[in-house]
Simulated scan of single mutants.
Amino acid sequence: MFKYIFLSFLFFSSTQFVQGQSDSTFKMVGGNFLYYANSKVADVDWTQSMEERTSAFVAFPYIGKFYGEEQELFVGFGVGFSQTRQVSDKPSYSSTTSVVSATDLSRLVTFNAFVRRYYRLHPKLAIFGQLLAGGGLGTLETEIELENDANLTSFQVVGTPGVHFSVSETFGLELLYGGLGFTQIKSNYQDSNSYFAGSEVNRLFGLDFDKTSVRLGITFTY
């Protein structure tokens, strides 16, 4: 599935590039990325604790077109790829082992439309606000005593601030940090005989300015 999505994005990008040669409006191809890994210890009860280790990778390639007299408005389309792995060493009450390792591995592909408003501070430096809306599909794989996998569907509307620095007339660097928005992820568990049978919906709304929300990217304008 990932191969076909990537090929579709390349086809869309190439047609936009060819069309860009016939008009004077600037277009931009870019991508931003995020990777983080951390661990923490949480108390299960007053006698035992649990260690959680999380790692995540996010990639967001996109393409779009500038509008306005000063090319200050950018409308784009992007495909997001994310993978998150969480490993928990939980205490076991079994007589044969003291610790049980549980692993959750989620993969998600999203399709997003977004708009940016750029404010030029300098010929090479600009800040922008981005409003993004999109949805996607994915999977959740679990490895635990009660093993069960799920299909994921997602929807999000997020506003994010960012900074863009023009290294040259065509090449640039960008940084996006945090955001305010709404995200919904629905998990449809596959095993009807499992304890986790059925579906579960998680909704999040609010600000996110954690250090794990910093994304770095590159841009190419033509």
Rank of each mutant, 00 (worst) to 15 (best):
R117M: 13
E72A: 00
T84D: 02
V18D: 11
E69C: 04
A42M: 13
D89P: 09
K40R: 12
F74C: 01
V18N: 04
L108D: 03
S88V: 11
V29Y: 13
F9C: 02
L125D: 02
G31H: 01
W46K: 09
F33W: 11
F6V: 13
A56D: 08
S13K: 04
M50N: 08
M50A: 07
Y35S: 11
Q21H: 15
T54A: 05
V44M: 12
K65E: 10
S106N: 06
S82R: 11
I5L: 09
V79E: 03
K27L: 11
N112R: 06
S98I: 14
P123N: 03
S49T: 14
G78Q: 03
A113W: 08
V58Y: 08
I63W: 08
I5F: 14
G129I: 01
L121T: 00
V44L: 11
F111L: 09
D45Y: 06
F26P: 12
I127C: 02
V29C: 12
Q19S: 12
V18R: 06
I127S: 03
S88P: 09
S106V: 10
S98A: 15
K90I: 15
L105E: 10
T84C: 04
S8C: 08
G76N: 07
K124L: 15
S106M: 04
V109R: 06
S14K: 04
G30K: 04
A37D: 14
V41M: 13
G31R: 01
K27S: 13
S49N: 09
K124P: 02
G129P: 01
Y62W: 10
I5D: 09
K40S: 14
R117D: 04
L10I: 07
T84S: 08
T54M: 06
R116S: 03
S88F: 13
Y35M: 09
R120L: 04
S82P: 12
L7S: 13
Q16V: 15
T47M: 10
S55T: 07
F111A: 05
T25R: 14
L108T: 05
Q130K: 08
Y93Q: 15
S106P: 02
T84V: 12
T96H: 08
G20Q: 11
R107Y: 07
T15L: 09
V75Q: 09
D104R: 15
R116P: 07
P91Q: 02
T97W: 09
Y36Q: 07
S39K: 00
F81G: 03
T103M: 07
T54Y: 10
T25L: 15
S39N: 05
F60D: 11
V75F: 14
N38Q: 09
R53E: 08
G30C: 03
F81M: 05
D43V: 07
L10N: 03
Q21I: 12
V99E: 08
Y67V: 03
F111T: 12
